[in-house]
């Protein structure tokens, strides 16, 4: 299951990434395997989404969220 499938309030633990290039960028921003992520809210039009990770709020498009595999 990937991060874009969660709804606000739900959380999960990052397991891996499906896109190597994107994974570097996401990890630099603190999205590491083992971190807990929580979806905080969707933008009014459903995309992008705001997540809580590594002690701060990050927003990303659903496109990018879908490369993050969670459990």
């Amino acid at each position: 299951m990937n991060l874009s499938q969660l709804t606000p309030g739900e959380r999960g633990t990052i397991v891996s990434f499906t896109d190597l290039e994107m994974s570097v960028k996401l990890m630099e921003m603190g999205c590491l395997p083992g971190e807990i992520v929580e979806v905080e809210r969707f933008a009014p039009l459903g995309d992008p989404i705001a997540i809580r990770v590594a002690g701060y709020q990050l927003c990303l498009r659903k496109n990018e969220a879908s490369v993050i595999i969670i459990s």
């Binding site: 290039e21 960028k25 921003m29 992008p48 705001a50 709020q57 990050l58 927003c59 990303l60």
Partner: peptide
Amino acid sequence: EKSYFIMEMPV
């Protein structure tokens, strides 16, 4: 560059 959108949301 590839368009993507990953942005820190400051408090």
